[in-house]
């Protein structure tokens, strides 16, 4: 697939976004100076391990974080409108209609005591002022579009009678119901089995293309974003360490963290018992992050300078490629032969 869309233009701009939480132990800087863009009709993969701040970033872009004890700075523009200065009431007009979200666990993200039909029709009635009858008709179409068999019958059922995959299809139908311009999918398949994950990712990609919608696909799995996004941003300890067009980041990986993450995943085309590359230690506490480059204490390439000075995001030779490292990786992390041996 080529991610090129005809419409083009910037849909989402995040400028120097920072989020900190006050905790009894001190201030946790969960997101630290993140800037990124999503082009209209394109998909951005946001990759990071647990605790990297990717979920907090997504929720702060959506302004869904609780107000108490959370301090957010920076700006978020959706279609040129600054979301950070909007009142909660103004945000409600954006949520669900222009900007919507799919959550990680379909077992907990649907209300267990409300019928599916009610949960799907709700946004339609809220944003489109549709009648009960019209919203029901559209809900059936939406459920059908996300691959739910016998949608009319499903409307009257409760979430507990559906499988995880079916429930995630329902939440996708809800998110798509008012034709949003941007969909945030936060680990939408982590809780699902691999064959179902594949189906759901296909569905998201297909809908994203068909609707020419922007999408942010948040995941811990580089495999999930490799073939389904146009751009990726890799997060570590609240910061972006590498970003750029997906093929470029995979083929010309510069950040040692991205590279190590790629090498530590067992690959299906490795011979059995291959030694996995290991990232020593574990992610730092965001309560008291290391000085300089946050990955330095775990990085095999780290030098003195790394723990003293935080490297800025530096442009690579390919357009749009940025990385945060003083001593970037040179060799392509993915050996090119591997792709040829895979096809029979």
């Amino acid at each position: 697939m080529d991610g090129q869309s005809q419409t083009g233009g910037t849909l989402l701009t995040v400028e120097d976004l920072a989020v900190s939480f006050s905790t009894p132990y001190g201030t946790v800087r969960a997101v630290d100076g993140v800037s990124l863009q999503v082009q209209r009709g394109r998909a951005l993969g946001l990759v990071g391990e647990s605790g990297s701040g990717k979920t907090v970033l997504a929720r702060s872009i959506m302004r869904l974080l609780p107000r108490r004890g959370v301090d957010t700075t920076g700006r978020v523009f959706l279609d040129g409108i600054d979301l950070t200065v909007r009142s909660p009431k103004q945000m409600r007009a954006v949520w669900g209609s222009r900007l919507s979200m799919v959550f990680q666990d379909p077992m907990t993200s649907l209300n267990p005591v409300l019928k599916i039909g009610q949960q799907v029709a709700e946004s339609l009635r809220q944003h489109r002022q549709m009648s009960r009858h019209d919203s029901r008709e559209l809900a059936i179409k939406l459920l059908d579009a996300v691959g739910i068999p016998e949608p009319a019958q499903i409307l009257g059922r409760y979430p507990h009678s559906l499988s995880g995959g079916m429930r995630q299809r329902v939440t996708i139908a809800i998110a798509l119901s008012c034709d949003p311009v941007l969909l945030m999918a936060d680990e939408p398949t982590t809780a699902l089995d691999v064959t179902v994950q594949d189906q759901i990712l296909d569905l998201l990609q297909e809908q994203q293309h068909a609707r020419d919608m922007g999408m942010v696909l948040i995941t811990h799995d580089l495999g999930v974003v490799a073939n389904r996004t146009d751009d990726i941003a890799v997060m570590y300890a609240g910061q972006i360490v590498e970003q750029g067009p997906t093929p470029v980041v995979f083929a010309h990986t510069k950040s040692p963290y991205t590279s190590a993450l790629l090498q530590s995943v067992p690959r299906i085309d490795n011979p059995p018992h291959s030694r996995l590359e290991v990232i020593r230690g574990r992610p730092p506490s965001l309560l008291n992050p290391p000085s300089g480059c946050r990955f330095a204490p775990r990085c095999l390439r780290a030098q003195e300078r790394c723990s003293a000075e935080l490297p800025p995001l530096t442009p690579g030779p390919e357009p749009g490629h940025l990385f945060r490292c003083w001593y970037p990786v040179d060799a392509p992390s993915v050996p090119l032969e591997s792709s040829t041996t895979r096809s029979a």
Binding site: W95, F103, Q104, T108, S109, L110, S123, T171
Partner: peptide, 20 residues
């Protein structure tokens, strides 16, 4: 989570409280 989902639909607070 389902309350967060309801919020992300843009429902007014009273609907979230009474319905969800």
């Amino acid at each position: 989570d389902y309350i967060l989902l309801a919020r992300s639909k843009g429902l007014p607070t009273w609907k979230i409280l009474f319905r969800h």
